[in-house]
Amino acid sequence: MKTIINPDGLIWGIQVYPLTQEITLAPGTYKRGDALGVVNGKHGLIGEIGFDATTFNAVLCADMTAVEDVPVMAYVNGQFQGSKMRVKEGFDIETLKPEARKLQIFIK
């Protein structure tokens, strides 16, 4: 799989090289850097109903609008700038750090 690295500051280092994997994204509008959780094989934005820190699984590679379940590429490990990541408003991205480390996803 091809790894997507854009010079937008989302990726802050390559000591843990960012790897991508195809995932299934639930319907919705998403942005590059979205923190995604997985429930029953479908990914959604952390902070949405059912997607809490314990479901954290990936970081979205590119902006996406999906009207149905759709396969997309997401980072499954790497080093990311927390200020460039997105979770649902009201959710604290800091709570993702312990779960992220288990996946070799490091948030600065």
Rank of each mutant, 00 (worst) to 15 (best):
I105S: 01
K97F: 07
T95N: 12
G82V: 09
G13H: 11
T29G: 09
D52S: 11
K2S: 15
P7W: 07
A100I: 07
G33S: 05
H43T: 05
L10I: 12
A100D: 06
I46G: 00
W12V: 14
E22T: 15
Y17M: 09
Q81N: 14
G9E: 07
K31A: 14
P98F: 12
I105D: 01
G47C: 09
I93W: 00
A26G: 07
A100V: 05
T55H: 02
Q104P: 10
G13Y: 07
D52N: 12
T95G: 08
I23D: 00
P7Q: 13
H43C: 14
K102Q: 14
F91E: 08
P18E: 03
L36P: 00
G78P: 02
A66H: 05
C61S: 04
I46A: 03
K97I: 11
A35Q: 02
V76A: 03
R86M: 13
V59C: 01
G33H: 03
D52G: 10
A74I: 05
I105W: 00
L45R: 01
L96I: 07
L36T: 01
K31G: 12
V87G: 02
I93A: 06
G50R: 06
H43M: 12
Q81W: 05
F51M: 09
G44F: 01
E89G: 12
D52V: 11
Y75N: 04
L36C: 05
A74G: 03
R86V: 09
F56V: 05
K88L: 08
G90Q: 08
L25E: 01
I4H: 05
K108R: 14
I93C: 08
K42H: 09
S83L: 08
N40I: 03
F51V: 03
V16Q: 12
P27D: 07
L36G: 00
L10V: 07
V72R: 01
L19E: 14
G28Q: 05
V70W: 10
A74C: 08
Q79E: 13
Q21E: 10
N40S: 14
P7N: 13
P71G: 07
G33I: 02
G41T: 05
D63L: 10
I107L: 09
N57Q: 14
W12C: 14
F91Y: 08
F106W: 11
Y17E: 12
V16P: 04
Q81D: 15
